[in-house]
Design a protein around this nucleic acid. Sequence first.
DNA 1: ACTTGGCACTCGGGAACACAGAGTGCTAGA
DNA 2: TCTAGCACTCTGTGTTCCCGAGTGCCAAGT
Lengths: 337, 337
Amino acid sequence: MLDDRKLAVLRAIVEDYVSTNEPVGSKALAERHNLKVSPATVRNDMAALEEDGYITQPHTSAGRVPTDKGYRLFVDRLSQVKPLSGAERRAIETFLAGAVDLDDVVTRTVRLLAQLTRQVAVVQYPTLTRSTVRHVELVPLTDRRVMLVLITNTGRVEQRVVELPEVVEETRIAHLRAVLNACLDGCGLSAVPDLVADLPERLPAEDRPAVATILSVLLETLVERHDEKIVFAGAANLAGADFTTGLRAVLEALEEQVVLMRLLGETSGDTPSALTVRIGSENPYLHGTSIVATGYGSGDNQLARLGVLGPTRMDYPVTMGAVRAVARYVSQILAAS
Amino acid sequence: MLDDRKLAVLRAIVEDYVSTNEPVGSKALAERHNLKVSPATVRNDMAALEEDGYITQPHTSAGRVPTDKGYRLFVDRLSQVKPLSGAERRAIETFLAGAVDLDDVVTRTVRLLAQLTRQVAVVQYPTLTRSTVRHVELVPLTDRRVMLVLITNTGRVEQRVVELPEVVEETRIAHLRAVLNACLDGCGLSAVPDLVADLPERLPAEDRPAVATILSVLLETLVERHDEKIVFAGAANLAGADFTTGLRAVLEALEEQVVLMRLLGETSGDTPSALTVRIGSENPYLHGTSIVATGYGSGDNQLARLGVLGPTRMDYPVTMGAVRAVARYVSQILAAS
DNA sequence: ACTTGGCACTCGGGAACACAGAGTGCTAGA
DNA sequence: TCTAGCACTCTGTGTTCCCGAGTGCCAAGT
């Protein structure tokens, strides 16, 4: 059905269309790529490709444009991820190395990726679920207020102000802190609820109301935020592009954490570290856009996902190369800190 | 020169143009607002207003459009800040009250403001400079690494990982923590450098390298970030609007912290809590856009600024009302926590 | 002195139209 | 199975034309 030449024609169509943004005709195609056949032959192949739904023409008597199915075939079988240049690699390395804390790492990463791909970059904050507790701190603010600070091994810090039901002395707070740390230090976050379940019973009865309050806030912190935070950058790169779904819809999706989450995360099935590509209508929430994403994190401990969002007509090999490279470097940085 | 009727005409032109986005002609104007005079009279007034540079016509024989100077006069003398409806006030209150920490307050604020004004909202994080130290925490991570956590009275938390030049025992770290807190608790951040200057000399000589390292990181944290962080929301609201300067330029400015800072801050001269409005070309960095901003923070302790960015053709009374109201509510929330 | 009605003028924007160019499908021949 | 040729069909562009909204000015009215 699809012999080698037809595939070559499809590849050529995708490449030309991506670079020129104009429907590509048989004549130009036969010339620019040295296919060694005449335009007429190319036309026959194109007719076959169109028959199978890989390409389509916007109007009668215009050139051909790849369909989502066409891009899919191109990504799966016709293209190779393009590695970055040495200069780019060095630029990434030095740029990321300057980060001072987790916030900074994420901010730098998302900007870097946006700049590298000239598209919208999206980065999810490292998930708490798989990380471990490094330290729990209780800081007395007033006699009825305590600040709870949770520090994880990924360098993430969560803080909450807790209103206590009654006045508690500082020494008791210090004791509670010691108990909490003894109990939780180094534990995975997902194990925390079990570990603290019987804690109130092991403490003096008079402290129990306060302890219960603090623990409930702690648990809330764990479940509520665990992977909701997502940032993006490079919205300016949308200015030129034309989305079938409308620029407004894209911008709204970007500011809607929930939608963004779904877009990034939905495909993180078996092998989170693999590149996943969603093309156009394969994308359930934002038709007319494509997403290239991957997990990141040290080794088998995948922390979160990052990726790029752009028009269906994007340079997939280059974009995939950039996403993969950035994910690797960020993973290194995080593992080192 | 400008009698009352001419001013009324100018006001009518601004209001009509803002609501219809089309150049407004003498006839429609005389009808819609009951000016009790004929279109011909209005035309004469318009000619005078144009002579003085308050309005202009895009082409010969089109209606008139306000100039930046016209908007300026409108804002200064012809309009009144429009207070929010009761329902809107309640919505703000409940929405902001649900915030769990400073991050959350800022995020909610910026979204709220964007939604309320249907434009781009910009919020600067509370400045560290004027706030005071509530607690300094040193958490040992490994035997050569310490996490430094700085908590301010505004609920802001800064954390840094410090690499120590040599192994330091935990007890010494605990001691240093106690000394630091005794020294800094409750002090204004700007006073910190002076207060810690002689600290190394008051400690055992063997600890000095470590102490010096920690202090340098602490000072770095203070100066580096003190008012650089700014967030925005509502970029989707730009989709419909047409900027003379180009959508791309606006989006780029929004992602460039430095530019954004300048836009918000430049006008915070004498009375930071007053509303400042920059119209079109008055705006040095982003022509063709207007900015409505104000300071926020409890009472005379102004912490930072927030505002709205939109096309020059915006509804100033409503926007100013929203910005002022939100700033007040945020100030309340921050003062209470 | 200001206001009003009338009138000629000027443009911008939309509709109608023609036309060139690119691209196609099809058929016949190598 | 590929190639060449040919007639056909579009879109996009440039031109022309016309309508209408809006103006500026002038002369008459209050």
